[in-house]
């Protein structure tokens, strides 16, 4: 059997498969179905300083080969996450985990990261500067290189943990943002977050989502994500986590060839709760079919 392990910022993962934030909760729902310790790691639900109730209904819409969401970062706030969710998570998942963080100012991002820095089970902080569903925060940092660098520096200043900056696809030049984050001290990048999109209901003649717009994910965005990972890989030397529409072991390999060190699986978990386990199970055979002995050697192999 081939070697599935990869190294993400000095922490060894058994395999590169990571459920993406917002599609895996805190892991409990999936732990009822299978032993989630088969995962490389996972990125838990996006965390903000204060509790957020999220956007009004409806928050979900079907699209061709994908879905829209406008959940709006519903979460109980960082202190409740540390106090209530992470001890429960520790019972079902025994590896270092990724904490996904959002905010409305650089100082707020830093404060959330400072509080999470004290939690031993967290291996990485994933700084989400790309949420399209909140106003006055999130994506507004991810679409401007200066603001992206400012958040990255602020977070790096308060934590010893590895900092992954999660980038938005809703930009003209992904390479410029990627370089700005690397220069500001990011240890890794993850991309892409969802693509800003919408649907309109023909009967009501109104947008389907109460938030008007939402984030597109699912197989529809895979080629777009692949292209952006390719461009980011050309621009930076820090590791990249590739995500966007991945649903098979073949997609994982393709994303790694484009430049990803590891991958995240998002929407696929919602359609098939076993998606990550199924992909991990399929990797050895798929690697063999393509003559791959060591998965980690694939990264950037298509360049």
């Amino acid at each position: 059997m081939g070697d599935l392990s990869v190294n993400l910022c000095g922490i060894e993962l058994d395999n590169p498969v990571i459920p993406a934030s917002g599609t895996f909760g805190y892991g409990y729902e999936f732990a009822e179905l299978y032993d989630i310790n088969c995962l490389g790691t996972f990125s838990f639900k996006g965390t903000t300083l204060h509790m957020r109730t999220g956007n009004p209904q409806p928050r979900i819409a079907e699209t061709n080969a994908g879905m829209l969401n406008a959940v709006g970062l519903q979460n109980p706030g960082v202190d409740a996450v540390i106090r209530e969710e992470l001890p429960k998570l520790a019972k079902v998942f025994h590896k270092p985990v990724i904490a996904n963080v959002s905010g409305f100012s650089a100082a707020e991002y830093a404060e959330v990261c400072r509080r999470l820095d004290a939690v031993p089970q967290i291996g990485w902080l994933e700084v989400n500067i790309s949420c399209p569903n909140i106003h006055g925060g999130g994506m507004s940092f991810g679409t401007d290189p200066k603001a992206a660098a400012e958040v990255t520096r602020a977070v790096k200043g308060v934590t010893a943990k590895h900092v992954i900056v999660k980038l938005s696809p809703n930009v003209t030049d992904i390479a410029e943002i990627a370089r700005a984050c690397e220069d500001a001290g990011a240890d890794a990048l993850s991309l892409i977050n969802t693509v800003m999109a919408m649907r309109i209901d023909l009967k009501t003649r109104r947008p389907v989502l109460a938030n008007t717009t939402g984030g597109l994910s699912g197989p529809a965005v895979f080629p777009l994500a692949l292209r952006m990972v390719w461009q980011a890989y050309e621009a930076v030397s820090i590791p990249i986590i590739g995500l966007g529409g991945i649903r098979s072991a073949e997609d994982v390999i393709e994303m790694m060839l484009a430049g990803a060190t590891a991958v995240q699986i998002g929407a696929a978990n919602l359609v098939n709760p076993f998606a990550c386990r199924d992909i991990i199970d399929a990797l050895p055979e798929t690697m063999e079919r393509y003559g791959i002995k060591t998965l980690s050697k694939l990264t950037g192999g298509a360049h």
Binding site: G25, Q57, V71, N269, P273
Partner: peptide, 11 residues
């Protein structure tokens, strides 16, 4: 979205 509590789509 999911139907089993993971995505917070129906809160």
């Amino acid at each position: 979205g999911c139907g089993f509590g993971a995505c917070m789509g129906c809160t």
